[in-house]
Write a protein that binds this DNA or RNA. Structure first.
Ligand SMILES: [Mn+2]
Ligand SMILES: [Mn+2]
Ligand SMILES: [Mn+2]
Ligand SMILES: [Mn+2]
Lengths: 222, 222
DNA sequence: TTTCATTTTTAGGCTTGCCTAAAAAACTGT
DNA sequence: ACAGTTTTTTAGGCAAGCCTAAAAATGAAA
């Protein structure tokens, strides 16, 4: 089992995230942007990771993870999300504080630690932001979730995830009393700017901008 | 609050451990031995740490931690031992498996994490090897413990700590059914080689070599 | 006090991971 | 097709943290 540096692991995870949705190769610039580093540094590292067989690199063509690289990246995501669950469930952190800490904890090397942590937490399927946690074999639960912005008036739904999980967005949701599991109903849609008026079941009526509605995943309940 | 690299933190901890018992300066060679590295690398790093004001360095004279260096080292020891408690108490690791993992976890940077972990674990005073855990102010509980080797026949005592915590020693103790909290009584001392016959209260009679007796801390109960 | 072994430091070199500036390649629009 | 723009790579350099070999300082013994 190859041992990677934290820098190598972070690059793998960046490539994984960029390529996981659309199946195009990850570009040097996209990786540089995600890692807040220079394109030159990225090219440097991509060559090294390609040399270790963790990704396929062709000059000017971007990169795709190899099978092994994908496994390693998936395991990192698993560790990251498990630690986030630990921090929120056991240590009572709020969901906007856990990412940076998990970013460090994910690099701790010990398969037994991950396995025991997973058991201790009761093998959670989703992290505090609603993202699926890969199991020990790399499989993750798929959930048929849609964007809040795609709902119509009268639709009822439950909030199951956030697309973006920046601190400011999460804190804004807290202020609105919106958290995972919150049930809501659409009252009205304003076509002019795409904003929506919704009512929290057993709570207040609030208006959300289009941007917010595009960043909330829900499941329809009616 | 200065941020140190893992390497810098490990050097600080090594100096701390070497100087904590006797109050002489830590020698380059002693540090090199503890860190399994070359004396040249140690000299290199000592200069850098001295430059950051974390220790006092005089050529050919060894080093002593500065006040700030001592605070940082103590906090590292605190984190290391808290994580060990977590691994044993919450994740059910055996006491011989936790050191290497804690060696990584201790470097995670987040004061809030340490504080919450401490609370979650109910502010433990001792780690799984019986070593005291410094509190948030760096104070640690002092315990009047003595070496098993200093007991006389008929003395009763309880095992509260181990001097050495190598894997092989800890596993040997497991095999003997000796763990922290075990009550015992001295049956006989063999002056010839310093070995001792003891009886575990409610258990068997065993004979321990002098080396083992010199590595076990006990408190007399009678 | 001088010699010799041990300890420590210096010198020089290597890898990793980053940087900026410049060159090269790839796209875009006309 | 070619000029201009954008993206990517190359070149050269730097700091951290390690190494080995050689030099210098220290301390113990004769
Ligand atoms: Mn990370
Ligand atoms: Mn998350
Ligand atoms: Mn460490
Ligand atoms: Mn310990």
């Amino acid at each position: 089992m190859e041992v990677l540096t934290q820098a190598e692991e972070n690059y793998l995870k960046a490539v994984f995230k960029i390529t996981e949705n659309d199946d195009k190769a990850a570009s040097t610039n996209a990786i540089a942007a995600m890692m807040s580093t220079s394109a030159a540094s990225v090219t440097d590292m991509l060559k090294r990771l390609a040399g270790k067989g963790l990704l396929h690199y062709e000059k000017h063509r971007g990169v795709v993870l190899s099978e092994r690289g994908g496994e390693l990246a998936t395991n990192l995501v698993r560790k990251h999300r498990l630690w986030e669950v630990f921090l929120v469930k056991m240590l009572d952190f709020s969901w906007d504080k856990v990412h940076d800490i998990a970013e460090q904890l994910e690099h701790v090397q010990s398969d037994e630690l991950v396995e025991r942590l997973d058991g201790f937490l009761d093998r959670p399927q989703f992290d505090p932001h609603g993202d699926p946690i890969p199991d020990a074999n790399g499989k993750m639960a798929m959930r048929k979730q849609i964007l809040l912005s795609s709902l119509d008036p009268k639709d009822q739904a439950v909030l199951v995830g956030v697309q973006e999980s920046t601190n400011t967005f999460l804190q804004y949701l807290d202020k609105l009393k919106l958290s995972l599991g919150t049930k809501l109903q659409v009252v009205e849609r304003f076509e002019y700017d795409g904003s929506m008026k919704i009512v929290l079941i057993g709570g207040e009526e609030i208006t959300l901008s289009h941007k917010v509605c595009e960043n909330l995943f829900v499941q329809k309940t009616k």
